[in-house]
Design a protein around this nucleic acid. Structure first.
Lengths: 164, 164
DNA sequence: TCGATATACTTGCGATGTCAAGCATCCTAG
DNA sequence: CTAGGATGCTTGACATCGCAAGTATATCGA
């Protein structure tokens, strides 16, 4: 019934329809994904998102600004999120010798373990809720299409050496 | 650099990559969209989302439960959101004769006007940030692919008989 | 050297949205 | 009619996150 309502009026523009479905799907899937992650590992989706970045970063640590940029949170969001992860002992702060302003967030041993455990089930959940709806070719296609969407909308974009 | 990090490790699975891009794109686009809507019309994305539903609903009014279902908010979320819209005079409550439990949310004259104004620029914004990245055929394809994603995941059933 | 500006990070505050609990009302079975 | 359970909605407590403002450090120009 709701999908009927949804498609009834807005079907004039496939772009619009696509956007609405994008929005709805995001709400539904992230809610479920977050719930499972929370239940099984005590992590939120954002927590996980940060942990992945750290896990694969050189030295398993990153500057907070860079975390913010890749995870698309604001600086303050990152601070608070990392506060939580620190309290749980999953990350710790590290000072930067060359620049006293920056504090690295580094994955602890516990953090690594916890992430690796979470990764297992989380990938399976993503596959179930998201990936399994598509064939291999469709996944590729989706990946490519979604990759075109803008990630930096309002930012000044005055980076020294960017897209390397 | 961020795009490098993003693509470097997770490219094993196109489904995973697609999901990550989905997440990121959602964060970036909704943030910008919301900012513009806020600046130009004093509405959040969720506000707008509810207004559309009301605008196209028969009698320009809906039960709050039904709003919740289509917009993918919880019941309490809807209550608070509508509180805001009522304070702004965009919607008003209407009693239901046949069932005293339900309160309709109805669009006011102001609400209609405000929505129609917002719709103009908002559609343009969606087109700019989302739609313009795709050809007509791609929009159709995207619409179809996204339409397959589950909207009702809240079922208590865990992961048991999913096939695949 | 010193001031202006940019950058890294934190903090106060407000907005949004969830969950759990609580009402009120409806609907059925006995 | 009445007890019990759905259903619609609201409220309180809480978490998350963005924005704006503040602090600390870095860097550049004169």
């Amino acid at each position: 019934m709701s999908s009927q309502v949804l498609s009834a009026q807005l079907s004039t523009e496939p772009g619009l329809e696509a956007w609405i479905r994008f929005l709805r799907a995001h709400a539904a899937i992230t809610r479920e994904l977050s719930a499972r992650l929370e239940a099984q590992h005590g992590l939120t989706l954002s927590d996980y998102d940060v942990l992945v970045q750290l896990y694969y970063a050189p030295g398993r640590r990153m500057r907070r600004v860079d975390i913010a940029r890749t995870v698309l949170l604001t600086a303050s969001g990152v601070t608070r999120l990392l506060d939580g992860l620190e309290r749980c002992g999953l990350v710790c702060k590290e000072r930067c010798d060359s620049d006293a302003r920056v504090t690295y967030a580094a994955l602890t041993k516990t953090g690594v373990a916890r992430f690796e455990a979470a990764q297992e089930t989380h990938h399976a959940d993503i596959e179930e809720l998201f990936g399994s709806n598509f064939s291999r070719a469709e996944r590729e296609s989706l990946r490519e299409l979604l990759g075109r969407l803008p990630l930096q909308t309002t930012s000044p974009a005055c980076e020294t050496e960017e897209g390397q």
